[in-house]
Simulated assay, not measured.
Amino acid sequence: MSDDDGGHGRVRASYDTVAEEYRKRIGGELAFKVMDRALLGVVLEEAAGGTVADLGCGPGHITGWLGERGPAVGVDLSPAMVAVARREHPGAEFRVGDLLALPAADGEFAAAVALYSVIHLEPGELRPAFEEMRRVLRPSGVLLVSFHLGTEVRTLDEWWGHRVAVDFRSLETDTVADLLTEAGFTVTARLERDPYPEEAPTRRGSLLARRT
């Protein structure tokens, strides 16, 4: 997308810029994220051997973890992130794409996860993004969405020594749940937790929802 497309071009360029550093700093995070692994395990059981999509996959560490346990596809806005993911996790499939126009067929995936990727969307883009996620899920497919809790919008122009231009939007659980419901999901589980010592100091929210 271009820089005029709702800021998505700026997000893409920012993640292209930090892709290698991001992998170094974040790529091993599942080792200490016990609760995240448990939630991903739920998603895998719900998928029952079907393909799981990792939407906003970054350097592909979540996709790679999923791919060791079943078929998985990672999607990310940043071509540089996708290049890193393909290099680091050659056993999984990766595609470049936007959350508002996913490169996938209707009903292609048994389940999907969107871990801290919707935080870069404008408020008015959340419901369309969830509707797009619903489109690519099979009937009764599950979606796991995780996000930073709150109402803050944090704008970065420097990230790990690199010049960037990206907003991080904290979200409220009820707001996300309502938007998922409006988009055609039934929310089946909610989780809020404190950060791990290794994480940025923000509370985290996760919602598990089923396509209706």
Rank of each mutant, 00 (worst) to 15 (best):
G70A: 10
Y15H: 06
D4W: 10
A112P: 04
G58D: 00
H61C: 02
L180G: 00
W160A: 14
K33P: 07
A38Q: 14
F32M: 08
E21L: 15
L179I: 05
T151G: 13
Y116T: 06
S117A: 15
T173F: 04
R211F: 01
R23L: 13
R87T: 11
L208C: 08
P139L: 07
R134K: 14
G107L: 10
R190N: 01
E172F: 05
G64N: 07
G6F: 00
E158P: 08
E20W: 12
A13G: 01
V142P: 01
F185L: 01
E21G: 14
F109P: 02
V96A: 02
L44A: 13
G64P: 01
F32H: 14
A31E: 15
V164R: 06
A209D: 03
A13P: 00
D178C: 08
G205H: 03
F185W: 02
V145I: 00
L144C: 01
Y22E: 03
A53S: 10
V166R: 01
R211T: 06
R12T: 04
L115M: 13
E131Q: 15
A209R: 02
E93I: 05
G91R: 13
G50T: 05
T63P: 02
R154I: 15
E93G: 07
R193C: 11
A19D: 05
R211Q: 12
T212Q: 12
V153L: 12
V75Q: 04
G60E: 05
M133H: 06
P139Q: 12
E131I: 09
P103D: 11
D16H: 11
L30Y: 10
D106V: 12
A92D: 02
L180C: 02
G124R: 13
E45V: 10
A165D: 13
G6V: 02
G50H: 03
G205R: 05
F130S: 01
L144F: 00
Y196I: 01
R37A: 09
L126R: 15
T51Q: 07
V73S: 06
G6S: 03
G161W: 07
F94I: 07
G7I: 04
T173L: 15
D3A: 07
T175R: 15
W65V: 12
V96C: 11
T151Q: 13
G6C: 03
P201N: 08
R138N: 06
R203S: 08
S146N: 11
G124L: 09
G205D: 09
A183M: 02
H89R: 05
E68H: 06
L121P: 04
L137F: 02
V73M: 11
R138K: 13
